[in-house]
Design a protein around this nucleic acid. Structure first.
Lengths: 337, 337
DNA sequence: CTTAGCACTCTATTCTATCGAGTGCCAACG
DNA sequence: CGTTGGCACTCGATAGAATAGAGTGCTAAG
């Protein structure tokens, strides 16, 4: 990496590139910027700066002799730096959100799916709303049962007697005795632990046992995410956001795996972030997507979260404003009712 | 239209064209059929027959010197004629459906969305499950209130005191006095009628009043559809079914309008059909789609329905088998619980 | 009635030539 | 020394021309 000296002019240029690219979806060139943006230098100077920005990893050229587009790092800088400039955006939007929440009524589930629809309509991206987590039940016991040499059924019984199950796919065959040992070990370690607060498996020495434990804990985490209620709306917006039908398919297929989306949102929030960009998501099929999330607060407690999924080339200011507005509105509404 | 004499060989050829096109998604030519299908005549003969089938409207050529693809009419004939040949399809599928319903558990809503997911996974098309209609409430009164010259708010109060509202968009301006007359007329005619069994508006003589009545009744029907619970899954399957991203967007946007989907399914069933093909749907953005539906029966009563939405180039035998299997399973499961 | 043969049509593919947006570099300028 | 106009260069996108081949309709013979 080159000496990152980000003076204010370079920052302004980076910002202009992001804004322009978000609008037009086409690589933006130096002369275009000189004309459009409020930057009072010649295109040659802009070219120099863009060159630097490229070497520092904020921009790339899709091919020589095209304009430039922001990298994930570029978007990240944009979000971190310029987001504070943004007031709560349009008044129009503000009013319609307020109106929505004063008129909203009906059951909780309806409230959430309506909120999800509101979000997707406000922003034209796909929206996610997670409901409050089910009361955290405690793990009582865990059983691993062989289905065939490489597939194992995980049974979890919780403190209320509910049984949840999940199939593990192993990479290597495992003996019955190992299964029994792992069952005992997991039950001993996890008994009384709430499903919501699982930590990583500690190493037990034996590699085969470890494999089982790691897989089991991963499966338990999935279970938790699966039992959470999720409302996702706006599939058609995904189809508008990308022009490769293949990307659309990949993204939609991923969004249909609710537990993935839930744990994605959880991960982002747990890092204290509210934006995750492209590769930062760590989910290959969503490499071209960004996620903007916010928790909503009822009686001082974060009970759930809302989020938007769109292309990395996303209108961050607008989306951040929408997410903040809606999460505040939702929290307030739920605190009253 | 030419003298439709559909002898058995022509029917076999039509069938083979549909089968082949469903598989390969490419126009099928005469020589290809002569090779692949179990038809023991030369390609020249097949060509002659295909020519006839085209003139009779069962097939078309996308362009001269491409193979042929079925028209909506072609699919219709295929479905009406050959569907009885089809046993309950794969045993594998049968078993997995049975297994699903013996293991199924959880709340009603969960049951429906799981069923929807089952359907979409079995078939690789988008699935729709409608829950039981809410207890049919009776209309108590109807009020039309002017918002601005061309927009009117319809208020409906039902027998339980619940208020539902809907905005009507008029093509012509309407006077206050007409609104009052229409309100009175509608209330008189519809008082005590269950929302579910609205019939078309009868003519009252006055054209302006009629416009209002027709619009109001349409709005009330929409209201009914909107309050029905719907579970739609498989957006990503839509993205796989079409290769024009624009078509994908259109179809997904339409599927997101739940009331449209619900009334579509209702319409198909009310005609005693269970398949609607392309233009038969009467919904422009779904012109390239087909819908296969089945009601499910609990304690002798049709309480809801399930359906699949895919491209007209859909695997009808498989989908019909799946729909029948699942509706039977769902009905049985709900009758027990 | 069926079928082999053939001329014909028209899309899809490939290749080439051209255009132009955008760049990097350099020399001149304030 | 930062800024700017000028310029040669690169490379994708677009348009046109040539070719290949799949598939047809028709005709004449079996």
């Amino acid at each position: 990496m080159v000496s990152d000296s980000m003076d204010s002019r370079k920052a302004a240029i980076l910002r202009a590139v992001v804004d322009e690219y978000v609008n037009c979806a086409e690589p933006v060139g130096s002369s275009h910027l000189a004309r459009v943006a409020g930057i009072q230098v010649s295109s040659a100077t802009i070219r120099n700066e863009m060159n630097l920005l490229e070497h520092e990893g904020y921009l790339i050229q899709p091919h020589t002799s095209a304009g430039r587009i922001p990298t994930d790092k570029g978007y990240r800088y944009y979000v971190d730096t310029f987001v504070n400039d943004i007031g709560d955006s349009d008044v129009l939007q503000f009013k319609s959100v307020e109106e929505f929440f004063t008129k909203a009524h009906g059951a909780l589930a309806e409230m959430f799916s309506d909120t999800s629809r509101l979000l997707t309509n406000l922003t034209n991206y796909a929206a996610v709303v997670t409901g409050p987590s089910p009361e955290t039940s405690l793990i009582r016991s865990i059983q691993l049962i062989s289905l065939d040499p490489k597939r194992v059924l995980l049974l979890m019984v919780d403190s209320k007697g509910a049984v949840e199950k999940k199939v593990l796919e192993l990479s290597d065959e495992v003996s019955e005795s190992h299964l029994e040992m792992a069952s005992a070990l997991l039950t001993k370690k996890l008994r009384g632990v709430p499903l919501g607060s699982l930590v990583e498996a500690e190493v037990s020495g034996n590699p085969e046992l470890d494999q089982l434990c790691v897989l089991s804990i991963a499966a338990l985490k999935e279970l938790q995410s699966e039992t959470e209620s999720v409302y996702i709306e706006g599939a058609s917006k995904v189809a508008s956001a990308f022009d490769a039908v293949d990307t659309v398919r990949r993204v939609l297929a991923t969004l249909e795996q609710h537990f993935l989306v839930v744990s994605l949102i959880r991960d982002v929030l747990s890092k204290g972030q509210n934006v995750a960009i492209g590769s930062e998501l760590g989910i290959e099929p969503l490499a071209e997507c960004s996620v903007v999330v916010a928790p909503y607060v009822v009686e001082g407690e974060r009970v759930g979260s809302i989020g938007l999924v769109g292309p990395t080339r996303m209108n961050y200011p607008k989306v951040l404003a929408a997410v903040n507005l809606v999460s505040a509105g939702l929290g307030k509404r739920l605190s009253e009712g």
